[in-house]
Amino acid sequence: MSSLRAYIITRFLMVIPTVIILLTLVFLILRIIPGDPITSMVGQKVPEEVLERLRHEAGLDKPYHIQYIEYLTGVFTGNLGKSMIWGKRPVIAEIMDHFPATLELTIFGFVLSVLLGIITGSIAAFRRGSKTDSGMRIYSIIAYTLFIPWFGMLLQMLFGVYLELLPIGGRITPGNSPETITGLYVLDSILTLNLTSLMDALSHLALPSLTLGIVLSGAYTRLVRNNLIDVLSQDFIRAYRARGVRERKVIFHAMKNAFIPVVTLMGLQFAILLAGAVLTESTFSWPGMGTFLIERIEYRDYTAVQGAIVFYAMFVALISLVVDVIYALLDPRIRY
């Protein structure tokens, strides 16, 4: 077990340089892009002294190395600067307003995609060569190539407009929001035992998370199928059976072995998941980070965009750390 701890600590320490490189890249890219962010935000017709004042407020009149150090210390103390439009609220506060919505959608979409992938992939593997198998493989290819806004709209038409079963946009019916504890409506509804808001939140989540889940499940279906077929033909599976281990347990061991590459894919898919979430959010008017980011890009709210990207980058780094730890917990060959 101590070697597992050593692995986790090493892996954790490796996050630090990764994050610093990411932050540096974001910093450089935003300064290499031609044009002055302030000018592009307010336009060139504005008097020079107003531009100066805005630049000073954003700290953009300082030398680059000072900006860089301030930016890094800011990020590590949770200060991403102030938004440049409207209330000029701290960017971190605005992110925190939108992040729970994205997190909720991502969790549901992610869990759904993995579940769908594992179920369809295992069915295909256990019925290898049959019509069901071909069906699952076609599903995987179609799901993989679906375009999120198009597929989302299709679901909206079917379940929202035609069957009138589910809401087609938004996160909750106004007035139904649960008391805020975590900002995740489903969790908050459960914590406050509010059944009305729970059902309302779930019905709003259904279509966007289904869209995201189905589109992302295609890759898992394929991977689970191929892995499971490979594992099931291995000697140690036959050896389990030859020792009289119950079939249910044999299948469990097979699934566990087939799951390892799936965990790797989860880490890789995570960035795609966030990108997919941006598209899904705009299709379903979901008030999350994607909607926030797109809105602020339109207004050229430079600090908010920078803050959102930094936040995304840190989030991806954190998730890949978590995935690697899960990987090590599953596979002893990694941690020794």
Partner: peptide
């Protein structure tokens, strides 16, 4: 299934592949 392992034991050809890599 109860005969397998309990009454008839079996040893396979390749020791490198006949153990589950994930279990102690």
């Amino acid at each position: 299934r109860k005969v397998r392992g309990k009454e008839i034991g079996m040893v396979f050809q390749d020791p490198m592949t006949s153990l589950d890599p994930l279990e102690k």
